[in-house]
Amino acid sequence: MSLLPDNQTELLDAYLRAEQDAQPEPTLTYRLNFGNGRIGGMVDGKDAIKQFIVKAIRTNRSHFRIYTDDYGCEIESLIGNDVTESFIQAEIPRMVREALIYDDRINDVSNVTATRLGDAVFITATVDSIYGEVTQEVTI
C-alpha cells in the first residue's frame, strides 16, 4: 500500500480531450420585450446576442444576487454624479466592453460611442460574435 495516490493521467487526458471537443452552448432563450416588460416566444443566434447586449448593459453589476459578479455593467456609477463629459466618454467604452466581452459568444467589442441627451444616454456598440457582427444601440 502506497502513501501516494495512483497516477491518474488517463482521467486527466480524457477530461482535456473532452474539453477541447466541447461544442458551444446553445443560445436559445426567452424573447424579452424591453418596451412593455413582457416575455414571449424564443430567440436564438444573432437576435439572442442583441438581446444579451441590451440586458447586460442595462443590468447593474453586483446588484442582483441571481447574477455573478461578471454580469452587468457599472454605468450606473456615472449616471447622476458630477463627472465631466470627457470622463464619461472615456469610461463608457471600457465599461461596455467589460460588460460584454466575458461571454463566450463574443469575440470583440468595438466602436463604442455614448451620446448624452437630457437624462438619457444612448450607447452604440459593434460586437463581433460567433454569429457575425452586430451593431446594437442601448438607451439608459
Score class of each variant (00 low, 15 high):
E133F: 03
N7K: 10
R65K: 11
K55C: 07
L117A: 13
V138R: 01
G132P: 02
V138N: 04
R97D: 14
I101M: 07
D21G: 10
Q136W: 03
N33W: 00
L4A: 15
G118I: 03
F64T: 08
I39T: 10
A22I: 12
E85T: 12
G40S: 14
E74L: 08
P93T: 06
T68W: 02
E91S: 11
G37M: 04
R105D: 12
S62N: 13
N7H: 11
P24F: 06
S129T: 05
I106K: 04
D82Q: 13
V83N: 10
G41N: 00
P5T: 06
D104T: 10
S110D: 11
V54Q: 12
T139P: 00
P93D: 06
N36M: 03
R116L: 11
L28Y: 04
G118T: 02
S2T: 15
P93Y: 10
G40Q: 11
S86G: 07
E133Y: 05
D103N: 15
N60T: 10
I79K: 13
D82R: 14
N107F: 08
A18C: 08
A14H: 11
L32Q: 05
G41W: 00
R65N: 12
I49F: 00
Y131R: 01
R97V: 04
T126R: 05
T135N: 02
I130W: 03
C73M: 02
H63S: 14
G35A: 09
G132C: 01
R38F: 11
T29K: 05
P93N: 06
T139C: 05
E74R: 07
V134H: 07
D119Q: 14
D119L: 11
R105T: 08
Q23D: 15
L100M: 08
G35N: 09
R61W: 02
D21R: 07
L32G: 01
Y67F: 14
L78R: 08
Q20H: 09
I101R: 02
I101C: 03
R97N: 14
R31E: 00
K55I: 00
Q23M: 13
G35R: 06
R38C: 10
D13N: 13
F87D: 14
G35H: 03
D108W: 10
A99P: 03
R94I: 10
T29N: 04
L100I: 09
D13S: 13
R116K: 13
I53C: 04
L100V: 07
R65F: 15
G80A: 04
F64W: 15
D128H: 06
D108P: 04
V121D: 01
V138L: 05
G41F: 00
T139V: 14
Y15W: 12
I106E: 06
T84L: 05
L16M: 13
R31C: 00
G45H: 08
I49V: 11
M42V: 13
E137I: 04
N107L: 15
I39H: 02
A90I: 04
N7E: 12
I57K: 00
K50N: 14
G37K: 06
T126N: 01
N36H: 07
Y15H: 14
N7D: 15
R61V: 04
N81I: 08
T9W: 12
D119W: 07
L28S: 09
N60H: 10
S110E: 12
Q23T: 13
Q51L: 00
A125I: 09
T59E: 05
F34E: 04
T139A: 02
T84S: 15
G118P: 06
H63R: 14
P26R: 06
V43Q: 02
A48W: 00
I49Y: 00
V134R: 01
I123M: 01
Q51V: 00
